[in-house]
Simulated scan of single mutants.
Amino acid sequence: MSNNTATLSSNHGAAGADTGARYHVRDHHPENGTLLGFWIYLMSDCLLFASLFASFAVLGRNYAGGPSGAELFDLQLVAINTAFLLVSSITFGFAMIAAQAKNLAKTQLWLGVTGILGACFLALEIYEFYHLIHQGAGPARSAFLTAFFSLVGTHGLHVLFGIVWLITLMFQLPKHGITPENMRRLSCLSMFWHFLDVVWIFVFTFVYLMGVLP
């Protein structure tokens, strides 16, 4: 009886060990799973901005007796702001090159420059909003201004989120190094930042340049 019990225990232990070996998962994170998920997020963000652009296309000429874009927009200021964001995309590219070379100091340097340029962009956008509201051209003035503040403001919130994400990574990199996980986060932020640049090019062309046309 004791021999049978020992045999059963031995078989049960072997089966348990075999089951454990069979179902042991070494990596719970599927390869390229984060990047795929982030691409899906960017596609949903495309739908968000597409709806905002569509709203502006419909409402962009409804001034309700108020000022038009030709009267409000300062193209020189907007051009400077556009330059800040486009150059920040280049500096982020330098940060990615440095990260791929495992150069932590240069990665941090270029991320810092990117963050400063993004903050300058955001500061000028806030100044523009403040100036418009001070002139009495707030979002409640007309359908045109409602659509304008919704579209440009949503883009500005995305830039703010990108800056917060960038600062978080700048704290993580010295602590953990340029690990595969941090490289994956940098790659996602890089896609996000370049996506915002592309959206802003459409904003600059569709809202500002076309907005000053009679």
Rank of each mutant, 00 (worst) to 15 (best):
I116S: 14
L132V: 15
P174S: 00
F92Y: 15
N81A: 08
V25Q: 07
E31H: 11
G60F: 11
H155S: 04
C188P: 02
V87P: 04
M191W: 08
L169V: 01
L111K: 06
P30R: 01
S2I: 15
L209T: 04
V152N: 00
L72W: 06
Y208N: 03
A6C: 10
E71S: 10
H134S: 15
C46T: 05
I116A: 11
T107V: 08
T7D: 15
I201E: 09
S51F: 05
F192D: 14
F171C: 03
N11Q: 10
C46F: 08
H158I: 02
V159K: 13
V199T: 01
F149E: 09
H155N: 00
F38A: 09
I201K: 13
G211L: 01
F49N: 04
K175D: 00
P139V: 03
V207K: 01
T19R: 04
F148Q: 09
N62G: 00
V25F: 03
S51K: 04
P214M: 01
H155Q: 02
S51R: 06
R61C: 08
D27T: 03
L132A: 14
I178K: 03
L47V: 11
I163K: 13
H176T: 00
W110Q: 12
W39A: 05
S51D: 10
N11C: 08
F121P: 13
Q172T: 00
H12C: 11
S142K: 02
N81P: 06
I126C: 07
F53S: 06
T146H: 14
C188E: 02
T91G: 11
N32P: 02
P180I: 04
C188A: 04
F129M: 12
H24N: 09
I178V: 04
H176E: 05
A54I: 03
F53W: 04
A70F: 01
L47T: 12
G69P: 15
I90G: 01
L42K: 02
A15Q: 03
M210T: 00
L196G: 10
E71L: 12
